[in-house]
Structures are given as C-alpha cells and as structure tokens.
Design a protein around this nucleic acid. Structure first.
Length: 563
RNA sequence: UGGGGUAUCGCCAAGCGGUAAGGCAACGGACUCUGACUCCGUCAUCCAAGGUUCGAAUCCUUGUACCCCAGCCA
C-alpha cells in the first residue's frame, strides 16, 4: 500500500493507462507493477505534478505494486537540495509513501558511465569535438536532414581514450560531448545523434566534485527506469517522440529490463499558469508573495490556501487521464474542496464587513448563550455555545435600506432571524454626516429565543452575527483566481502578466469572529456560514492576531441571480 | 512543406462494430434556522465528407483543425 489513508477518495475511473496495466497483469506480462515519480529537484511542485503523483502512486496502490520517488538530478547547474525536502514533503502531504524506494539518478552515475563504455565499444557512441553551435548547425531542420559530424568516424580506441579524459577533467566545458551514433537523416530529430554526456565543471549537490561530465535526460532516464525494474514509465506528451530513443538505448544495452514508456496529457488549469518559468517569474518579480502564496497553483500555495490533500486527490481522480490537450475548468477544483470541506469542516459564524446592530429592548448588560450545531447535517460533530448580547455585528451585505426585489435579509420593517438567537425586526437606521449607515436598530421577539418562531410563522431570512462584546478581531484574506483570463499567456494572448487579476486578494481587517474561533490552530478548517471555507494562515496568523484565508466561497445562487 | 500526437455536450471524460456512462458548469423545481448542503428533472449522435456493414463514435479512405519536436534542459 502506498497511501497513508485508507479511504478511497473517489471510485477509480477507467483510463487508457489503467487499461494497459490491467491487461499487462492479466496476460502475465508482469506479475506486479512498478511505477515512479521522477521530479527534477529544480523547483516547487504544483497541482500538475499532483496529477502525475496521484497517477503513479495511485496505480501502484490500486494494483498492489510499488512506486518509486526518484530525483532526476542529472543537471547540477540547475538543481538544489533545498527543493528535495519540499518535494518529499509535498508527496507525503498528498498521502503517498514511497517507503524504502527513494532513489537518485545521481546514484547511478557510475553505471551510466559503464554503459556508455559499452556503447562506445559497440561503435554506437562517439566523442564529438564540435562546438555547440557547430552541432546545432549540423543537426539540420525539421525539413532537412542533418549532416554527419567530422568526428563521427573516430575509432573505438580513440573514443574510449577521449571519453576517459573527459571524465578526468582534461577538457573544458562545452569542448567535447559524447553522442549516440544513430541517424543524422532521421525525420525524428531526437534520433540525429543525440548528445548523451556533456562536460560541466560544476559541483553536484549530492556527488560533489566526483564528476565533471553529466548524462543527459534521454540517456539517464531510461537506464534509471531499467535499473529500478520500472514496468510502466509514465511521462507527459512532449516525450512521445523521445520514446524511440528511450527504446533504442535500452535495446543496445544489457539492462535488467525494458520498461514501457507511456505518455499522458499534462494538467492545465484555467485562470492560472503552470509553467515553471512563469511561476518562478511571479515569485521573483514579486507579483505574488512567494511560492506559498495562497493564489499560487503550487502544492505549498494550495495547501496554505486551505485545500485538503483529499480534495486534491479527488480532483485528480475526477479529471481523468488522457492524451488530448486539455484545459481543466477551475470550478472542478473548487468543487472538489467544497465537497470535502462541506462534510468535514465545522461551522462557525464570522462577520467580515461588520455593521453594528443594536437590539432595542434587550436588557442592558445582559448576555446569554445559544447552542449552535457544529454541523447541521451531522449531529456527531457536536455543538458549541455562542454568546449573544444587545449589540451584534451583521454582514453589511445582509442589510439593505431599500431592499431590491427578492432580497429577504434585513431591511426596515422586515423580520429576519439571527441564526440560533432571535427573530429581530429593523426599526430604524443611524447614519453619519455623510449619510452612511453606521448602525441599525432592531426590536426583537423574546419568544423566539433560540431562533424558532413559537407561533410557527415563516421567517424567510436567516443571517449570521457575532456579539460585539465577545467578538474576536481578525484579519481575513479573500482570495480569488490569480488571473482574470482563462488561458493567461496562451496562444494569441498578450503577456500573461497583463492578465493578473487585480482582485485576486482582498485583505479585510477588523473582521469579527465568534469567540470559539480563537482556539483555532494551523490547518483547522471551518465553514464560516453563508460565506465560505476558511483556514488559519499557517504563516502569518498569531494567537493574539489571527489571520484567516478564504479557501473557497460557498455557492451563492443569490449573487448569481442578481447578475 | 519532415516526424510524432490529438479530435465524443460550455470544460473534462467513458466507450474498443450492436444502437452515446459519469463528473463539473448551466437551467428548471423541491426542501431549508446557512439564498449552503441534499433531492428531483432538463441538457450530445460522436471534427468533416465519402465508403464497408443488417448495424459504426468505434473499421477503411480522403480531408480539416489543434498540440509537440531543431537545449551540451528535463
């Protein structure tokens, strides 16, 4: 098992990769399967990686196989150990466990080297002393065949000698490379004598200065898979035309097995960006507040936003796996969190934009407590006592002096229920010099204690409130989609930066929370009734100054109706 | 104009010759001390055109559209 939690989030939907695995198991091609998630430690994981993680670890879990976590660390110039910890943490958070199966491509450097020797001896690899520019020029174009390098026919002995000297550090960066000898006229450019080793006199974060030549992806990845006994090597679509090379390398070498590479379409989500480059720019140009900004599609960002790992897994399950390029609607992700949080998040009352309401006739200085259910549909979640007094705050949006048609919240002369408390009626409003409403005065029905009308009269509107004397002040951050256009920076679109949503974050101070929320801790999630799902910000919140993040709003057919 | 892919409802996605699952969204309605949740109901003939067949989204042909590839990145 490779999940830490037992509950399957959603029923497993069929997809072409599952079908392949099922067939391979059924017809005996494999007794059990081995997959792998092979990130390069050069950045933070995002929701797109989650799709791959769920796919690979999910297959292993569901078919009783195993999934390796392997760092594809073959380019020391770009990689760093700082990313490794974050990646491991993210995979664990998502609910997966690689157990003993933690690997590094860099652990195979010596094997890669030995295999390269085999290729040279078979006359299938040669040292090319051309410059990068020359190699590019000889590669040809999409329509024209390439030209063979003048160094292509070097003898095996010479190649062996040169390659050994490359390893020994006798040459400078970029002066020599080891290339495969395949076919410079191949219509598949990947087969035009691809470079498999380059010289980089750079320390590697794991192997230090042991090496100054490093293998390229196409050469290292397939061999790594073979060494680990991977059965299904799942990657994204852009590697599709690398597959002939993947197979070519393994066919020439005495490797333990020959994994099957299978490609699927990477995840694209609308109203956000997913490329490492753009994500990095957003952070570096301070367009967002770091990798873990709750608006970022990074796993650290999404987590800080309040998403549960269960909802991410459910999301990955529902979007399916295919080979056609897709742009998933953000609403599917939002639906996934709502579905999860609706069931598990305790309810609470919080007023984000407070409007003072004075209950006329309520005994001066009196305070009482009302029992409020933590979850209206699940009694097992218990209840809490919520203090009430003669002055409460309600949401500004819940009052209209001149109510529009269909508005059934608080308005002059209309009765409305303060949830769990009393039925009140607005009698008058108090305005400041500018005509701004600063206070609403209500009468109340003492017989409606607890919120129910003793005479059975129907009260259409129920609104939430917080007692002024008992309220906990807090900062609340309302997040919205990072971009205001569905495919920022896409084809025929201006620079993605111009599509940033100016309202992607709104910081509200002086919000009034019911006192029970004072004891909230990191990763606690609540439904602030009638508003949405919120969690304590894991970075900026302090006990004496709580900060809540809005994970998602509730569906709101009222505001939709108004549109 | 080389090679590799993909085309099924607004967005995903099952289907593998036997008469179009499901989810999201949307739209009606019921219920409701969250205008939430829940519950009912509505919502496609499968890129196009030919062909094979009793029968095709599924097979063949010819087109069309879109994506990927010319890093000593992964």
């Amino acid at each position: 098992m490779s999940t830490t939690e037992e509950t399957p989030v959603v029923e497993k939907a069929a997809n072409f990769i599952r079908n392949i695995v099922t067939d391979d198991l059924k017809n005996g091609k494999h007794k059990s399967i081995v997959t792998r998630f092979p990130p390069e430690p050069n950045g933070y994981l995002h929701i797109g990686h989650a799709k791959s993680i769920c796919l690979n670890f999910g297959l292993a879990r569901d078919f009783g196989g195993r999934c390796h976590l392997r760092f594809d660390d073959t380019n020391p110039a770009k990689e760093d150990i700082e990313y490794e910890d974050s990646i491991k943490e993210n995979v664990k958070w998502l609910g997966f466990d690689w157990g003993e199966h933690m690997y590094y491509a860099s652990n195979y450097f010596e094997k890669f080297y030995q295999y390269a020797l085999v290729l040279i001896e078979k006359g299938l690899a040669y040292v090319d002393s051309s410059s990068a520019d020359e190699i590019r020029a000889m590669r040809g174009t999409l329509n024209e065949a390439g030209k063979e390098s003048p160094y292509r026919s070097r003898s095996v002995a010479e190649n062996l000698d040169l390659f050994a000297r490359m390893r020994a550090g006798e040459f400078e960066d970029g002066t020599q490379v080891l290339r495969l000898k395949i076919d410079m006229a191949s219509p598949n450019i990947n087969l035009r004598d691809p470079v498999i080793y380059r010289i980089k006199k750079v320390d590697h974060h794991r192997t230090g200065d042991a090496w100054c030549i490093y293998p390229m992806y196409d050469y290292a990845h397939c061999i790594s898979d073979a060494i680990e006994g991977i059965t299904h090597s799942i990657c994204t679509l852009e590697f599709e035309d690398h597959r002939p090379l993947y197979d070519w390398v393994l066919d020439q070498l005495p490797v333990p097995c020959h994994p099957q590479q299978i490609e699927f379409a990477r995840l694209n989500l609308n109203y956000t960006v997913m490329s490492k480059r753009k994500l990095l720019e957003l952070v570096q140009e301070k367009l967002v507040d770091g990798w873990d900004d709750p608006r970022m599609p990074t796993l650290v960002g999404i987590r800080r936003r309040g998403f549960t790992s269960e909802s991410i897994r459910a999301f990955c399950e529902t979007i399916g796996v295919g080979k056609s390029d897709s742009l998933i609607d953000m609403s599917i992700l939002e639906d996934a969190v709502r579905e999860d949080l609706n069931v598990r998040a305790p309810r609470a009352m919080s007023v984000l934009r407070p409007l003072k309401v004075v209950i006329e006739g309520y005994p001066e200085g009196q305070t009482e407590e009302f029992e409020a259910a933590n979850h209206p549909n699940n009694p097992d979640m218990g209840s809490r006592m919520v203090p009430f007094s003669g002055t409460v705050y309600i949401e500004r949006d819940d009052f209209q002096e001149e109510p529009v048609k269909g508005f059934f919240r608080m308005a002059p002369g209309k009765e409305v229920r303060l949830r769990y408390a009393y039925i009140v009626k607005c009698e008058s409003v108090v305005k400041d010099e500018k005509g701004e409403i600063v206070e609403v005065r209500c009468s109340y029905d003492p017989a409606s204690r607890g919120g129910s009308a003793p005479d059975g009269r129907k009260i259409k509107g129920t609104i939430h409130w917080v007692s002024a004397d008992h309220a906990v002040d807090a900062e609340v951050r309302l997040y919205d989609r990072l971009f205001s256009t569905p495919n920022p920076g896409g084809k025929n679109e201006p620079d993605y930066r111009t599509s940033l949503n100016p309202k992607s974050i709104e910081v509200l101070k002086g919000c009034k929370l019911e006192p029970s929320l004072a004891s909230a801790t990191i990763e606690d999630r609540f439904q602030f009734e009638r508003l949405g799902y919120f969690c304590l910000d894991m970075k900026d919140s302090r006990p004496e100054a709580p900060v809540f993040n809005r994970t998602a709003t509730l569906r709101d057919s009222w505001s939709e109706q108004k549109r």
